[in-house]
Amino acid sequence: MEHPGFFERAGPYALSEVATAAGAEIANGADPAVKIDDVRPLFEAGPSHISFIDNKKYLTQLDATKAGACLVIPAIADRVPAGTTALITKQPYHGFARALALFYPAAMQPMVATAGAPPVDPTAVLEAGVMIEPGAVIGREAQIGAGTRIAAGAVIGARVTIGRDCFIGPLATVTHALVGDRVIIHSGVRIGQDGFGFAMGRTGHLKVPQIGRVIIQDDVEIGANTTIDRGALKDTIIGEGSKIDNLVQIGHNVIIGRHCVIVSMCGISGSTELGDFVVMGGQSGTVGHIKIGSGAQVGGASHPTHDVPPGARYFGTPAKPLRESAREQAMIKRLVARDKDSYEDGTPEPEEG
């Protein structure tokens, strides 16, 4: 059976209503009565959906989109393909945030458990052998598989699905998530909170509703006090067998492949993709929207700012291939040693300024 989702969608709305909510103008010749029933990314949108573009690097996706309407800046309104209505605005991302709030009004304060319900909601489905320790809360329509243990003080949100033989540690929270079998989630982990999404502006920053999920596949282990944000429109995904240490931050829309190792205090920015068997060293991190190829290794305290090829070993900030980084470090060391020797020989130090 298909999962019912974590947010109730309002609408459909007439195109004119969506445009008004988004603060946009409908391009000439469009039918303002056309119905729009959801918000989707450019590459997924269909004739009844609205999308947006605010970065020219996605123009190829705009060219191919099947969206019924798209929020665009005036300069690219003529680029919108036939069959898609341009909604013209100087701030497409702001308009997108307002459109999301129109269709998903509850997304800003998602429900975890029903007020006044017992700790284990009567609509939750627990298979035989599930162990619920004192103080745990199980939200409405949650599903928990046989042999899973929910430790004291843990919170399982509404409609969350947890597989068999899992362990959810004390005071952990799991919301907006689908969790596989044999998953270990240690104490204090936070899974499924909204991602860090804001439409920036000179007069303030508009919060963008996050309506995606977190998908955690089989045999994943997640260390204490790690946080994994739910996706904005699509899902945040943790691949089968991956091991995540304590105090790791994983942003919205991140995709982590199978059997990756993410060491403590690592930060992975939104929409980054890791292939299979990637290793991220302690205190490393990435910028958003890059890809780390399968089998790649990123050294401790290193920070890639561009795609990393499969099987590569990168080190430093900004991260570079290991040999290149090592040569640079060796050269700097030789230069420092040479300058030190010259000072000790009586050569006056250069004057500052």
Rank of each mutant, 00 (worst) to 15 (best):
E2H: 12
H3D: 12
H3M: 13
R9A: 07
A10T: 03
A14F: 01
L15V: 10
G23V: 02
A27N: 12
D31Q: 07
P32T: 11
D38Q: 13
D38E: 13
F43S: 11
A45T: 08
H49P: 07
I50W: 11
S51E: 01
F52W: 12
D54N: 15
T60D: 14
Q61E: 11
D63Q: 15
A64N: 13
T65N: 07
T65G: 13
A67K: 04
G68C: 09
V72K: 07
I76R: 07
A77F: 10
R79H: 12
P81F: 03
G83F: 08
T84L: 09
I88P: 08
Q91D: 14
G95E: 02
G95R: 08
A101L: 03
L102I: 05
Y104F: 09
Y104I: 00
M111A: 14
M111K: 14
V112G: 09
A113R: 11
T114H: 12
G116R: 01
A117V: 01
T123D: 01
A128K: 14
G129P: 12
M131P: 08
P134W: 00
P134A: 06
A136I: 07
I138N: 07
I138P: 12
Q143V: 15
Q143N: 11
R149I: 15
I150F: 06
A151L: 13
A152Q: 09
A154K: 13
V155Y: 00
R159T: 05
I162F: 09
D165G: 13
D165N: 15
C166L: 08
C166T: 05
I168F: 10
V174Q: 05
H176L: 06
L178S: 10
G180K: 06
R182F: 06
I184M: 12
I185C: 06
H186P: 07
Q193G: 14
D194M: 11
G195I: 02
G195T: 04
R202I: 10
T203S: 14
L206C: 05
K207M: 04
V208G: 06
P209N: 03
I211W: 01
D218R: 03
D219H: 14
I222L: 11
N225M: 10
T226M: 07
T226Q: 03
T227A: 15
D229Q: 02
A232P: 11
L233F: 00
L233T: 05
K234Q: 13
D235L: 07
T236P: 09
T236V: 04
I237V: 15
I237Y: 06
I237H: 12
I238T: 09
G239A: 04
G241W: 00
D245E: 04
D245Y: 04
V248F: 10
V248N: 06
V248E: 06
G251V: 00
V263N: 04
C266Q: 03
G267A: 12
T272V: 13
G275F: 14
G275H: 03
G282M: 11
Q283P: 02
S284P: 13
T286W: 02
K291Y: 03
G295R: 09
G299L: 11
S302R: 05
H306I: 14
H306D: 15
V308S: 01
P309M: 06
P310F: 08
R313Y: 14
Y314Q: 00
Y314H: 06
Y314A: 01
F315A: 08
E324M: 03
A326E: 08
A330I: 09
M331I: 15
M331W: 12
R334W: 12
A337C: 05
K340S: 13
Y343R: 15
E344K: 15
G346T: 05
G346A: 10
P350G: 06
